[in-house]
Computed example of a mutant assay.
Amino acid sequence: MVTDTAPTPLETELRRLAGAVPDPELPVLTLEELGVLRGVRVEGPGRVRIELTPTYTGCPAVEAMSSDIERVLHDHGMEHVSVVRVLSPAWSTDDISAEGRRKLAEFGIAPPRSHAADGPVALTLSVRCPHCGSTDTELLSRFSSTACKALRRCVACREPFDHFKEL
């Protein structure tokens, strides 16, 4: 995180603006819903520092995310926008908000399962079909349109779908 102190009203507004930027690979999600926006700090008049954690170290979308954040904040009066990558703590699919998970399913992408840090390990690794809700699905390919998704098919309704892999 950028700061341990409470955000200023301006930082809160800038976070809202930066967080509303759509993910370039999954435009159904905002960067806030994806959980990659880690911090916002105003460093002086017209100067802001944004911390962004990629979904994985080599994520090609980070450049587009950074450019989109810079454009939005420039359009709202910030002359100097610095977007920095923060690799620790690493991003996890647990960082996707409940709203983000809902939007993924609504868009036809099976959201990642949540991890319970102290809970029991699930005995089944079923993935629910976002079209019909069946858990009778099969893996077609470990990779889909992006490295963070796998291609699956529902045995019940026969529809193919992406599954956002758990990290």
Rank of each mutant, 00 (worst) to 15 (best):
R47L: 07
A98N: 12
E79V: 00
L14S: 00
E51I: 04
T57A: 14
D95A: 12
E13R: 15
E51V: 03
S145G: 14
H74S: 11
I69S: 06
S141K: 13
L151P: 09
P22I: 00
P112G: 08
S134C: 02
V72S: 03
C148L: 15
F107S: 12
S66W: 05
E166H: 12
S144A: 15
V72A: 03
L26I: 14
G46L: 02
G39Y: 04
L26G: 03
L10Y: 01
R102T: 10
C59S: 06
E63H: 14
V81D: 04
V86F: 09
P9Y: 06
H163S: 13
R71N: 03
C148R: 15
R153Y: 05
H163P: 05
V84P: 02
I69A: 04
H76A: 05
A110F: 02
H76V: 00
V62T: 15
A156P: 04
T12I: 11
P54C: 09
T57E: 13
G35F: 07
G77R: 01
I109L: 05
F107P: 05
L52V: 14
L73V: 02
G100Q: 11
T12G: 12
V155I: 11
L140F: 08
E106K: 08
I50G: 01
E32F: 07
A147Y: 03
R102E: 15
A117I: 13
D118V: 11
E13G: 00
A64D: 12
L104V: 06
P89I: 06
E70W: 02
A61R: 03
T93P: 08
